[in-house]
Design a protein around this nucleic acid. Structure first.
Lengths: 229, 229
DNA sequence: ACCTGAACACCGTTCAAGT
DNA sequence: ACCTGAACACCGTTCAAGT
């Protein structure tokens, strides 16, 4: 939409002068995804963003997968690791919330991370740090192993919810109420829930952050109890 | 690979005689995805599967999204709903395991479900049944609401793990041991875990089903405790 | 009524050729 | 050494045309 063939000379020369590099390509790819979502990240558009033809990217990356692996790495590296001074539970909780901040800045990231086949160095480094926290907190290897599985992708700060009831799904409170009334016969229990979780309902509007922390704490409490055994 | 232009006359006429219908298209789409993964499901291949050009599909579906919504519906409908006679915890546990059986038969389904923007009738029906179980088991609306969020996509029987340490990721025990040794310096805590979770290690090979049920039970226990409050 | 041919606007990727 | 032009094999989708 905003695309144009006209580029000022300074921009064009500045971009063509700086040679392509992995870092420059990955930064451009992250920017592109941040602005237009992951579907905006095509080899052709990425090339255009860098003032270069798409084919030039293949000099630095074997294929698009390598670029996707690369941008996951870039943003996971943004997560600051815990210094390990606090109690394991406080520490891990803080760590996950920190990771969540980063993911909220890059809404495309969870899906890309889950779709990636291989685990890159940044995630390994992150998980290694989490394992250090658990082991340091007295977890057996077995329980630590379970812990990482129970937390699943939540460990990186995102929750794969079945529906987004906060953002788009409930554009108008009025529309939601209408939907709820229409559902009432077919899905009475969901209708009850929808009404309660609507803006005026008893529960108030559903807050993703609150739900995320509720789930995280429930799991951490469960792990604490097992650790004590 | 197995594709061919030669079709026996009986097959060809049988397929062209039966007119296209939503059901026939969706069944073919599910079969295609079951056999070749979700990337094998293109409009062109789907048409070919049905002995028809891709464009003919647009008579029955507005676009490909509608087909994806459709196949999710088809397989979620395969999940048998609980009759609600047991205790809530037994009931819900059984329900989730039942859903998991279905998902394991359609390995492409979790990703497609999570990528879908809207929640279709089959999932609504499923969630309505889960809500019935929770409410019948004495859960307040608020706690039931939390419960559905904590369970997340696990409620449908799948766990979005960060890595598949069971299938492809560990092709050879020997290779895994080598990798572990190579990681030892950089990621000592992960190396320790990898060794323990390898075939010969203390934990034995990692079993996805075991981990799934461990996580499910931890969450159900946590919910039970909160319910008692 | 139901399907097709031809076309459009996109993809990722390869490779010989240009500077 | 680094990038491009042209091409290939795919996508989803539209629309006038065929039967």
């Amino acid at each position: 939409v905003a695309g144009t063939d006209v580029v000022t000379e300074t921009e064009a020369s500045a971009e063509s002068r700086t040679p392509l590099s992995r870092e420059r390509v990955l930064q451009a790819a992250v920017d592109l995804a941040d602005r237009g979502g992951i579907e905006a990240l095509s080899m052709r558009k990425l090339g255009q963003e860098l003032g270069v033809e798409a084919m030039a990217l293949y000099r630095h990356f074997r294929d698009k997968n390598e670029i996707l692996d690369g941008i996951v790495n870039v943003i996971v590296k943004e997560i600051e690791l815990s210094d390990g001074t606090a109690d394991w539970k406080v520490d891990l909780r803080r760590q996950v919330i920190t990771a969540r901040q980063v993911m909220l800045r890059h809404p495309w990231a969870p899906r890309v991370i889950e779709d990636r086949a291989t685990v890159g160095p940044a995630i390994l480094r992150y998980l290694n740090s989490v394992m250090a926290t658990l082991r340091g907190g007295g977890f057996s290897i077995g329980l630590a192993h379970h812990a990482i599985h129970v937390l699943g992708s939540r460990i990186l700060g995102f929750n794969q919810d079945l529906f987004d009831d906060s953002d788009d799904a409930t554009p108008e409170p009025e529309a939601a109420a209408n939907l709820a009334r229409a559902m009432a016969e077919q899905y009475p229990h969901l209708a009850e829930l929808a009404i309660a979780a609507s803006h005026d309902g008893r529960l108030g509007p559903c807050d993703d952050d609150v739900e995320f922390e509720f789930g995280l704490d429930l799991i951490l409490d469960g792990l604490e109890r097992l650790r004590a055994t």
